[in-house]
Design a protein around this nucleic acid. Structure first.
Lengths: 170, 170
DNA sequence: CATAATTGTTAGTATCATCTAACTGTGAGG
DNA sequence: CCTCACAGTTAGATGATACTAACAATTATG
């Protein structure tokens, strides 16, 4: 649905949005710092964003997202969070690595896939019976290099139930 | 471990590798077609790759990956496949969407995360007892918008086993 | 083997996004 | 209310990557 822009543009929008949430007025210096670029890069990015109708900004004034810019920024952030949560909460990747990966990949995940990923995270993490046992099994698998024999027994026993279910369905 | 290059460079290397696997000699036209760019773009990319020692190529000759180029290409392809398989086999995203997403994200997934993702795919798909029942549960969740009540009962019964396991561990 | 069709290259241009250096505007302290 | 430190901007350069138009080399075909 939402039109995609360059990863640079998306990064600026996201940074501006997050800076806005800090409360105080968003400045060029602030954005340049959080994004690790020089100030003229920010100025020229703002000029592009202005043309696109993504921000309101008058010379030497504060940077404010328009409705449109805000929508795009939130969209990017949703993708960021989906990727980050998946990496951290399911794959158990370190926070920093996950954040970095999410920051780079967030620009390229289709809306179809984010939706599915979010459903997956919800399915796994908001399980009514609590954290699924297989997630512990996965962490065991990662750290030991092989499956937990005890859990394999559980899995095996479940298969009988599954078979019954499958037969019922057919 | 493996140094990363621009996504464009990685794309060319991957395309050349895949074209090589087709058997016949790799040509500029072929690469330009599979990558959807014009021929001069390929020529200039090859020049860059040549400088980097990634390909061997003499004017009007065939394009061949060097050892180094081959290593990078395979590395990219591993990331591509990990992402693609995850999207298709676990999230159940359509093939084309998954391939497109993988093609774009493959350049940005850290080696730490690919490894973990591959372990996850292996853990889920190569389960000794076959396809995990919760994957069916997830597909039900996706298509119905809520969990399968029958599966929730199974999950619930498993929790007792988990509790025993956890107590044993402590 | 001559020539047409195809393939590949060169030259030149454009865009995006960054940088440095130098300049200008602003606001806080004296 | 002046001045100076800092914030922001402008101008111009750079690098990566793509493009078109035009040219050159190669291959295939009669």
């Amino acid at each position: 649905m939402v039109k995609r822009h360059s990863s640079s543009i998306e990064d600026y929008l996201e940074a501006i949005m997050l800076a806005s949430l800090e409360g105080s007025k968003v400045t060029v210096t602030q954005i340049s710092q959080v994004m690790g670029v020089k100030k003229p890069s920010v100025t020229s990015a703002i000029a592009r964003l202005l043309e696109m109708g993504m921000v309101a900004h008058e010379k030497y004034g504060e940077i404010v997202l328009t409705e449109k810019g805000s929508r795009v920024a939130q969209d990017v952030y949703v993708r960021h969070q989906a990727l980050r949560r998946f990496l951290v909460e399911i794959l158990n990747v370190d926070e920093e690595v996950a954040t970095d990966d999410a920051c780079r990949m967030e620009h390229y995940l289709s809306s179809t896939s984010v939706d599915r990923l979010n459903k997956f995270i919800e399915f796994v993490m908001d399980c009514p019976q609590g954290r699924p046992i297989w997630l512990d099994g996965f962490n065991y698998f990662v750290s030991h290099g092989h499956r937990n024999p005890e859990q394999m027994l559980i899995c095996s026993s479940r298969c009988n139930v599954r078979d019954k279910l499958t037969n019922n369905d057919e």
